[in-house]
Amino acid sequence: MKQTEFKNVDPPMWVAWNQAKASIRVRFLRMLITSLGVALGIAFFCSMQVLSSTPTHGGMQSQAQMQWLTGTSLVMCLVGVTNSMLMSVTERYREIGTIKCLGASDSFIVKVFFLEALLLGALGSLGGSLIGSLLIALVMSATTGSPGLVPIVHAIVVGTLVGILMTVLAAIAPAVQAAKMPAAAALRVDV
């Protein structure tokens, strides 16, 4: 019998990057919707941040109430992002099984989903932060007075970082699980 000699070769990062890019390009509409889901959640979170950063917004609500509202918006955003990312990974179990059959290591599969989520999360979060912060700033300028530049920039930076972190975490967890599955099991999954 021939003896197999095992070597430890992992494909370079650009192989995973190309796979992630192809996936986003071909599923553009699907990805756009996922990204929009992220953007909306983050937009809400950012607008709440800007709103709560200025105590002089008509004196309608107390600081504690505003913090509670910001917290709630973060949770809503978290649920939305997790849901869309979970869906986009689980509907691709078969693809994961196939790539495993072709000889992909578990880490390659995780890398592909990590890169996809990073790109999607970055675009969605940045877009959402800009939209949310600027819109609420506009509304505030027209009614109670401009919130100033600092809280807006702060909200955009925090919103983008939080968004990217949530998107990546929400995608990595199911991707790691799928990568660890025996290939046969991943191929059997019907979603």
Binding site: T4, F6, K7, N8, V9, T98, K100, C101, L102, G103, A104, S105, D106, K180, A183, L187
Partner: peptide, 16 residues
């Protein structure tokens, strides 16, 4: 798992 991936990559071809 890594060695198994290597085996699948080099020794076996799959058709479904």
């Amino acid at each position: 798992p890594k060695e198994l991936a290597f085996l699948r990559c080099h020794t076996i071809g799959y058709i479904f």
